[in-house]
Amino acid sequence: MFADYSWGDLMSIFAMQGFAGLILFSVYVLMALGLAIIFGQMGVINMAHGEFMILGAYVTYLTSKLFAAFLPGLFGLYFFVAMILAFIASGGLGMAVEWLLIRHLYKRPLDTLLATWGVSLILQQLYRTVFGAREVGVEIPQWMMGSLTLTDTIEIPINGLFVMVLAIGISVAIYVLMYRSGWGLQVRAVVANRAMADAVGINTARTDRLTFGVGCGVAGVAGAAFTMIGSTGPTAGQLYIVDTFLVVVFGGAGNLLGTIVSAFSISQGQSILEFFLSGSTAKVLTLLTVVIIVMVRPQGLFALKLRK
């Protein structure tokens, strides 16, 4: 399949597809980080994760409308406000769902899966009722449009670059939160030994709720970032949920570095294959490879050494 292209062409293709893969990678990382916190740390399968992300996207959409109507002078900055609002909205909803639903089901993981699927159906229909079934797109601020031209054949879109920077920033923030803060220590203590964490005075119920909330909040931020590169529809979350779960499982649940490495390999593999094969074949091959690897090595790329 390489025979028709010259060496220079191939390099450009790899660079361009590699960059497209990097954008996909950023989306995967943003979505998977929230899931890695919830699934990896708490062992809860949240099938509504995609819908929490879409909530963030809709919040961004509303914020952009509000800025356009009332603060047109500051329109270039609306995204940063939207990101914070998205985190609060999704995180708040996440904590409510945890309190109403999930805390009753920690001992029944399969049932959690079904219940959160129910939540996702309700949220989807809610979005459809409120925002309509059609996809909505936000107006990207001026400074994010256009692209950087590196060589004649390689161009890099700025919005993609921005999403990448955001993904890196949030990964670092979560790393600091989980491994360098007192709260992160509490979360990891609860994961390692719930009874003992309880005994030394950690409020495990509150830790659970906050962990779930942070995971959902990160999904909201992912949704906000998502609006910069694509449009948002009521069922857009469902498209990514399986890929995201595979990213987390492939990376080794509970391991943030593993999540990032696996998001990188899956997205790069997929987008480079996409150029040479059809989109669906590339996706099938990538997912199939991941599924087979996970079957052979169920603990994922980086196993967390933990006594269960």
């Binding site: 993981p109 399969l110 399986v242 595979l246 599924v291 996970v294 079957m295």
Partner: peptide, 26 residues
């Protein structure tokens, strides 16, 4: 390999997604 529980659910779900994409693509 003693994989069960939620992992099994996720993998079977992924297989359902793969087969759908395959059928639609081909």
């Amino acid at each position: 390999r003693r994989v069960g529980g939620v992992y099994f659910s996720i993998i079977t779900q992924a297989i359902a997604a793969i087969l759908t994409i395959l059928i639609i693509g081909q």
